[in-house]
Amino acid sequence: MAAPPSAYKDRQFLAVIGDEDSVTGLLLAGVGHVTDPPDSQRNFLVVDQKTENSTIEAAFDRFTQERKDIAIVLINQHIADKIRHRVDTYTAAFPALLEIPSKDHPYDPEKDSVLKRVRRLFGE
């Protein structure tokens, strides 16, 4: 049934996986957070041409499973495409996974995992 309040009470940050521009913009809005040393972790990952898919997956897992203080994970849609199978199989309510458009890749509602589910539910 519905998640107990303990599952989301402490979640207060947003995490970002995106290209440089998207991450920078969101950081300017003030979402960036680095946890206290010694194990300082950033809640954002900049992906460029050279970034391996395994790195993206590791960050995705860290944001969605390990860290309990993240409420929303934002991911650029073209990066979500790289790990599409992981994104599509992710169904948990917390943290919420949100695909966002990037500067170079306009938003395509057809690919969005949530909108796909919406359409499937209504049999379109």
Binding site: P5, Y8, K9, R11, Q12, F13, L14, E20, D21, V23, T24, L27, L28, A29, G30, V31, G32, H33, V34, R42, N43, F44, V46, A71, I72
Partner: peptide, 21 residues
């Protein structure tokens, strides 16, 4: 350079969310 500078200077989240039911 500014992009890199912004990424490095992010320390504490100013923008946070809380949940209500």
């Amino acid at each position: 350079n500014i992009l890199y500078q912004i990424q490095e200077s992010a320390k504490q989240a100013r923008f946070r969310v809380r949940t209500k039911q």
